[in-house]
Design a protein around this nucleic acid. Sequence first.
RNA 1: AGGCCCGUAGCUCAGUGGUAGAGCACUACCUUGACACGGUAGGGGUCGGCAGUUCAAUCCUGCCCGGGCCUACCA
Length: 1127
Amino acid sequence: MTDQRDTPAELPKAYQHHHVEARWYRFWMERGYFRADAADRTRPPFCIVLPPPNVTGSLHLGHALTATLQDVLCRWKRMSGFNVLWLPGTDHAGIATQMVVEKEILRTEGKSRHDLGRAAFLERVWAWKDKYGSRIGEQHQALGASLDWSRERFTMDEGLSRAVREVFVRLHEEKLVYREKKLINWCPRCHTALSDLEVHYEENHRGELWSFAYPLAEPVPAAERAAEEAGSARRRAEAKPEQSAEEAGSARRRAEAKPEQSAEEAGSARRRAEAKPEQSDDPGGQHPPGPITEIVVATTRPETMLGDTAVAVHPDDERYRSLVGRMVRHPLLGRELPVIADPVLVDPTFGTGAVKVTPAHDFNDFETGRRHGLPMISVIGPDGRMTAEAGPFAGMDRFEARKRVKEALALKGLERGSRPHLMPLGRCQRCETVLEPLLSDQWFVRIEPLARTAIRAVGEGKTRFIPESWTNTYMAWMRNIHDWCISRQLWWGHQIPAWYCPDGHWTVARERPRACATCGQGELRQDEDVLDTWFSSALWPFSTLGWPEPTEDLATFYPTSVMETGHDIIFFWVARMMMMGLHFMQDVPFRVVFLHPMVRDEKGQKMSKTRGNVIDPLDITQRYGADALRFTLAALTTAQGRDIKLASERIEGYRAFANKLWNATRFALMNLAGFAAAGEDPAALARAPADRWLLARLSRAVNETVGALEAFRFDDTASAIYHFVWHDLCDWYIELSKEALYGDDPATKRGAQAVLAHALDTALRLLHPLMPFVTEELWQTLKKAIGASGWPESVMVAPYPKRRPVDEAAERSLGPVIGVIDAIRNVRGEMNVPWKTALRGVEVGSLSPEALAIVRQEQGRILRLANVEGLRIREDGRPTEQRPGSAVSVGEGFEVRVPLAGVVDMAAELARVDKELAKVQADLGGVQKRLDNPSFVQKAPPDVVDEARDRLEELEAKKAKLEAHRRLVGEVDASPEPAPATAGAAAPPPPPDADLGARLRAEAERTARAGAAETREAEAAAERLKEDLARQAQPLGPAYMEMGVVEATPAPSRPGTANDGPAEATVAAKPAKAAPRAKPEKGKDRAGAKKAKARTGGRSKRPTSSKAATGEKRATARKKASKQRRR
RNA sequence: AGGCCCGUAGCUCAGUGGUAGAGCACUACCUUGACACGGUAGGGGUCGGCAGUUCAAUCCUGCCCGGGCCUACCA
């Protein structure tokens, strides 16, 4: 690795990431740049702990996104002088890993984990972990992640396991961990309890609401019943319709945080939807005359009726009033069940208004059972088969039992109909098996006290969510939180530090206790169960730093700076880290939570193994380069955090960007020969306006980039740099600087070299966090080429550019030059003049003194960048001389006339100008309308009104110039005598036209009035016009300076020559379009004219606008023109 | 059921109470001495719909339509 920095002096023509990436990663590692120093108190700490990927997994693009964003932050902070720790690690991922390994063993050996036994199985999992865990490291390295590998952790490391035990024991001591027999979500396939969060609800499962009758143990005699009903009818008449529903709704929510809220709406909505249609065929409400013999209930799970221990009705439901307290007989098992009244469980408007109660298999029923002291009969076992309690159905699969129970009931004539029913169905997040609520002994965390603290911390702003909208999500969940079931019936994980004696007493301890804490027996067995994976994950921000030891890492880096992760695990992980961190460290685990979007495929589908659309980041890095992938991911990470659809075109685009940068550097290296950086300020060496312009643009790019990074605006970060490199540096500066670089003026050349080198160096440092590899390669090359002394060893430890003032004058000053070049290019492009055809005799007019100065100074650049031969710059600030056979483009603060006679036909020019005019008209209409509105002038902020007036002025000036030109062209167009259509052939000059002269005069007046600042100009306009007209007969007006290649023959369109005006030839055949009528001008002597200011060429307003000085503004304005016309 | 988010150019997405933007794709022309992973120019949008607030609405408010996500124990 001695020659790794021996980058060839001449770079290859295209960037080849393969040759670069691995090399630099090794270099960084060898230098120890990734390593944090906990003892270093001179630099402020910055710490991110990597969300630990599942150890047996392989990284997908979501991980690549996480890694990229965190690396961007870490590299940026490191370069900005922070003591950065980015801590890597992996998660044992209990259930996921165990399943993978089980599956593998079954596949290869046909054995189950029980065949192997616990110890042997765990050995196999560890082996698996060692084998596949390394891939994650390789993937991170390929991405360029600057992780401190010396601190890598695994959730089942000894240190972290110790932290887990410590936390469990302490929480138990504080009564925040307890063991209890409760109803939990059970996966019969995974054979373990799950937490609420691990339940995935299928939203609209198409189920069946099946009704059957419970026969009353003793029928209610008709007389008794009649008496009841009379009372019922009376009550019904008095009762408000919503009453019962209201009570049912509110009672149901009693247990919840906000009991009353929206119960009413819920109740009435439910009634509207269901009660009315139900009533007609409601078996409970429509008794045949005679004694009551049964009560009808509806269920989606008929098999659970085997475990029913009651039938519940609403206490206010008149229909069932007479039945409460009576018994029904279980038709299949014979036992008797009470009819109970329960306002919480029962919504009288749903179904029959009577509910079967199965406390051992339904969460609502479980609570009901507790309230009423009902027996809890488990009829479904952990394997999903019916238990002995199920009588004749024992041993049957639960779904088979469902069928059989229905058949049995139907056979007894108790079936009472069914209807399709949409319902949420809980499935195992891991295997999609339908979950079974089971009664089971489990460990729980009493979460409410922990949540309260975590809510307060966020409320007080100790931890901030970005995007902020996630704060609500977090808060809502925290406020509504349920106790957390943390035990899992698995083998792979942290075995619970609790032991039980033969009498069933539990002893919780850090290490195996000698004797039972309750009875003193010595025969203790450890709980076979392990803890939920997320239990250890919750400790990650401090367990990885050495807790419970008071380590230096902990002191320096806790709380961590940023938690960067996906919003899909905000509850699983973020919320729990908050609670645990606050509880055990007395401080939040992180200051900021940045929740990134989900990465989806190009169709917007979630990436999943079953869909087969999972992409290995390595496939992309190998194909396009890690830098391209990183830049793409950053650029797609927007403020709202909407999901990312990753399309390969986008990555290709940013690979091209890397290549663009590569070639910009190549260009620099070719032109930096002899330039040695001597530490001078490039601004001091700068000579050309373009030099100062680029430095200003660079400053702006730096400010935008830093600002975006500070705000976690990764998309803006990417685009600020992209725009600077591609458009400012490559499109404009490199082209503008060629004169200087190829020329032989030493000072000018050296200035350009200094600016180029500086801009490149700065851009590479700016970009490094996003594209570490290519920037390192290029930066090293640049460093070598210019023999820079005092540069650091690597760009990754070079200082990150700092915010700086922007030289706005310099930035703006080039506006007219860029504008003129754009205008000429526009004419060339629109008129289809090929690049190789040099334009001759281009004229520039209407220049302010400042614009004149810069255009004059930079005319060499104009000639080069627009391929112009011969530029005539009008020096008296007035418009160019009007003449046929030319195209005119009017910009803000300048006007360009391109002679095209003999080059192109004038119909095209007419169309082009019409397009421009239409756009101007439209804009003008909008502005005029606003200004004509007295309310606007009165009520709008003064600066907005001023702006509108300025705008109006600009537009009117532009319009006037364009119209003048258009009339001229239109005149030509309308020529009644079509000349032979031999393009380029000399044609006689147009005959003197008195009418034309008058029209020109009128136009000039209009121009002067609207556009020029001084009203006195208007008075002189006619006079000037006369002069102009006279001058047309002369070769060149005295007001011009001429520049460019001086041809032996006069420029084609030079007035008075034979070349002038042949354009009519091909044009005249076309019927003339009516010139757009100028709108009658309102408020002609507007006050705005008074305050007309000298144009500086670019936009004089909004000096902060980054676009003000570039050609973009005009480019877009042009696009708008055609659009407007279409309307 | 509740909550949140989205609907802007062909596609993917920024954005703003007053002149609608980017990248890609598309069209035309161009091997101009860094780059065809390139250059120049161009076409393309009643900013989902309807009301309201405002001098002014793509932006704020309400409703509607369409799409997505999260939370939730309705038999």
